[in-house]
């Protein structure tokens, strides 16, 4: 299972690469159980990202609010059964919706044989919202059972000065938009680590 530090390094690497508008192939960081010099198959190069009109980039985040990675790695067996798509939208605010948080980084990951794999990274806009993120979901089909199949993803939200929020088991149903409201909490000044707050969801069983 890919460690949290690896995930963080991965994200930092993504940011560094995109800040240079580097169109080189993106490679995943080496896995802990593979030799250092063996790289994983790179993801296809994403679409070029246009420079923003005004140069008001905050210090942590040199990326523009566009979806950076759309391609799903092909060797994820779970995806073979996900023939439909569902949607996710993340709304990041503080003070219980008193004000929106711009430039929060929202990473959507999925469990895979490689561990947690990032499949989408976005930054929030001036209203604290990500664009609508399209994610693979299972076909609902002719369901006589009240239980409906869905896909599970993890959402991680990072913003300097705030606790990191991790939302596990975010359910995505075919054709449905899941709206994820995230209330960010400012870090106390004596917090020695960037403390994480993790939420878990469970869907009903019938």
């Amino acid at each position: 299972m890919q460690s949290k530090e690896d995930m963080q390094k991965y994200i930092d690497e993504m940011m560094r690469l995109y800040s240079q508008n580097n169109k080189a192939d993106i490679t995943l960081p080496p896995q802990s159980n593979t030799p250092q010099n063996q790289q994983i198959t790179p993801l296809p190069a994403p679409e070029p990202v246009p420079e923003p009109a005004t140069n008001t980039k905050p210090e942590l985040l040199p990326i523009t609010p566009v979806e950076l990675i759309e391609a799903i790695p092909e060797n994820l067996p779970a995806n073979e059964s996900y023939t439909e798509t569902g949607f996710l939208q993340v709304n990041v605010t503080a003070g219980e919706k008193a004000f929106p948080l711009e430039n929060a980084v929202v990473v959507i990951t999925q469990k895979s044989p490689l561990g947690q794999t990032a499949i989408s990274i976005n930054a929030t806009d001036k209203s604290g919202r990500t664009p609508i993120i399209t994610l693979p979901a299972p076909d609902i089909g002719e369901n006589n059972d009240a239980n409906t199949p869905f896909a599970s993803y993890t959402a991680e939200i990072f913003l300097k000065g705030y606790h990191t929020v991790i939302n596990e088991n975010v359910p995505i149903f075919s054709g449905i938009t899941s709206i994820l409201p995230v209330n960010m909490v400012p870090l106390p000044t004596n917090a020695t680590n960037r403390r994480e707050i993790t939420f878990y969801s469970n869907e009903p069983q019938f």
Binding site: P171, S178, I179, F199, S201
Partner: peptide, 9 residues
């Protein structure tokens, strides 16, 4: 479930 998502429907 504290912090969970909401469905648009």
């Amino acid at each position: 479930f504290e912090g969970r998502n909401i469905f648009d429907s």
